[in-house]
Design a protein around this nucleic acid. Structure first.
Lengths: 241, 241
DNA sequence: CTGCTCCAGATCGTATACGATCCAGTGCCT
DNA sequence: AGGCACTGGATCGTATACGATCTGGAGCAG
């Protein structure tokens, strides 16, 4: 877990996290990484498209060496797949990989949320409720992109209180990966949105009531598992996109 | 999760995993990575010691470029800490980092063990029992190194059945990190060994009985949490070293 | 027409060279 | 004597150059 920016350890340059990082990084490799990361998350590099070193080096106005390093970081973030002597390609929305990512995220986010629960302040709880209210308001005139953004913000409020930086980093990576996989579940399974909002409220109630660790973890994990299940149900029988 | 060697995905060269990997890797960067990884795990590079690019390049008979890449991989495995324009140093046995690593491992290994439980064959269960028997035999004439090796083998038997390669990779990384942190808990807290063996048996019983997912996960997680707690108890009041 | 071989282009992998940055120790000034 | 500017060495960061490897297609044999 290379770095959670705000957190300790004299480790290296900012890995992943929030796409729109300040990037005070005075290193070309860092800039290349940030730039490519944003490019992938914003869909400027379509899934499956190749990332050619020399070409990117030209665009970014630098040599291939920093670009190469940036791509290897993206590889370890599982955002690109790499083949020796051939090159890198942006990962696509493989349903199997999606499942793996969601499972992993369910695990680490659930734990993280449960561990942070006692640390969440009253204001933050209030903020989370407001975000969820906005999500509910969006249900009528549904906009997957906006909804997904709010969803991310909602959960971030609940797990962002550090604790174990390793786990926090894993959560960030999972989210990054989902973001890169294109606009998330809700674009494919809009019917899941109302349940999701309802589960959010239940989760907040548990936290507010000071529920025990296991209960919160189970709820948070189940919440994500439900989203995954909804997606799988749509994909499996229907056939394809 | 760059690669779980046997598993799918055209991803890159072997990251971490089993220290003694075959290393068919025809890439200098890969060889450098393997070499450094072993060096760290075997303690040839002491914690805190610096890893100088040019120096390592000479020893390995290659240029600095592949060495640099190898070190960045080690950095992302959290085995070295890196500072820009200064260099890399092997991570030491910081109790806080140890705690983080154990917590994370408790999480992912617990889940992995629970998910693999239904897939474990009768022979594997038998093998695990034999390993644990050898561990029990070792209790009288205690040897931390041997004990730790068996411990790793024991758990590996239980979680090695893939499932979600991402999570499996996280488990491997956790173990690698512990290995690098020098000969594990049992050297510091030998008193923990008997309990550990007993808990192993309980865990095997649960798996053999086909216990529900949550029960197995809780047991496996608790098993590791207990080890961590034993370590923390020894460290906290005692003071140092 | 089919299948193989060979070749050329594209792309990566590594070596080498040079500039940038950091750290420690020296000497001067107060 | 104490503190600050300077300088030298060590080390990393990046650019450039060249060799290695892969991919796809043209051409030839069957």
């Amino acid at each position: 877990m290379s770095a959670v920016p705000g957190a300790a350890r004299a480790s290296g340059p900012a890995t992943a996290r929030d796409a729109a990082a300040p990037a005070e990084s005075h290193s070309k490799a860092d800039r290349a990484y940030q730039s490519l990361l944003e490019g992938i998350q914003q869909g400027r590099f379509a899934p499956g498209s190749r990332l050619v070193l020399s070409q990117l080096a030209d665009e970014l106005g630098m040599s291939v060496v920093p670009v190469r390093e940036a791509i290897r970081r993206l590889q370890h973030d599982d955002l690109v797949s790499y083949e020796r002597n051939v090159g890198a390609t942006v990962v696509g929305i493989d349903p199997v990989e999606y499942q793996y990512t969601m499972e992993t995220l369910a695990l680490v986010e659930g734990f993280s949320t449960a561990q942070c629960a006692p640390l969440v302040t009253a204001e933050e709880l209030q903020r989370a409720r407001e975000i969820n209210a906005r999500m509910r308001a969006l249900l009528d005139d549904f906009d997957p992109v906006e909804f997904t953004a709010l969803n991310k913000e909602f959960h971030a409020t609940l797990f962002e209180h550090h604790q174990n930086p390793h786990i926090l980093d894993l959560v960030h990576r999972g989210w990054n990966r989902l973001t890169a996989l294109r606009s998330s579940t809700f674009a494919h399974v809009p019917g899941r949105a109302p349940e999701s909002v309802a589960e959010h409220d239940q989760l907040l109630d548990l936290i507010a009531a000071g529920a025990p660790f296991q209960e919160i973890e189970a709820a948070a994990r189940q919440h994500r598992a439900n989203t995954l299940a909804a997606y799988m149900d749509t994909m499996a029988p229907a056939g394809q996109h």
